[in-house]
Write a protein that binds this DNA or RNA. Sequence first.
DNA 1: ACTGTACCCTGTAGGC
DNA 2: TGCCTACAGGGTACAG
Length: 283
Amino acid sequence: MPELPEVEIVRRGLEPLLVGARFERVEQRRPDLRFPLPRGFQKRLEGRSVRGLARRGKYLLAHLCDDNVLVMHLGMTGRFTVSHNHRGGGDPRHDHVVFHMSSGASLTYNDPRRFGFMLLIGERALDRHPLIKDLGVEPLGNELTAAYLARRARGKTVSLKGFLADQRIVAGLGNIYISEALFRAALSPNRRAASLAKANGAPSERAERLVPAIRAVLQDAIAAGGSTLRDYRKADGELGEFQHSFAVYGREGKPCVRAGCRGIVRRSVQGGRSTFFCPTCQR
DNA sequence: ACTGTACCCTGTAGGC
DNA sequence: TGCCTACAGGGTACAG
């Protein structure tokens, strides 16, 4: 389900239910997700209240009153559903963790593939944690600039697709929004990342195009409530709507939507994942 | 250091 | 109906 826009929508949905509330009871229904859940997970949460709910890349960070941080990653299929009557979603086999909050709300974490995970990390150690410390810049923050991309891309032979999928470069992009951002920037996903920099290391005009394309597609997706593929739903049960605005993702064989372009959207596989692009206007 | 592939796990869709 | 393959928003562990 989740790339940055979907995680941000989840964050916004959970924030009013979690912040200021206390974990009254935590149900842990299996020992592990992708990683083992922390030792004493339930005991370390119960009785603590939540000071704030933040996002970093695709991570959700619940800052607790005892200076620990509940770090949550939704993997491919993780989702939270909210209920006020102890009922989860319609798939109890994969309801792995339930947070019963003092506010009366219960949050059920469901994750069929279990690529998601939860960790408890001390506030002070968070920025040094192996999963967090190497994360790249936030694409909606001020640090994402053409100069930054050029600097990180210099000398790299990876494709633009592979470059943008690397969370150490930009944190939060995934398969959908990479395809969509590259379409908006009219850049081929197969182009070498190094072409974002000129020979002298200055950003190329391509890098200048790519930055606003990334920002715009993420902002548009957040405004639309994220993308709903398969069964993703927002915490309130509503569906995101951005999938109706995809220009290339999932549109293999269909005509390019760019004005004046007569191309046909193609699908290719890079690193075992599908990339969608228009070979006519994306160069 | 970088790059590409296999793999983690479960469910679903489509071809036969 | 069943069986098989390919594929799915994530990321990591290797081998070369």
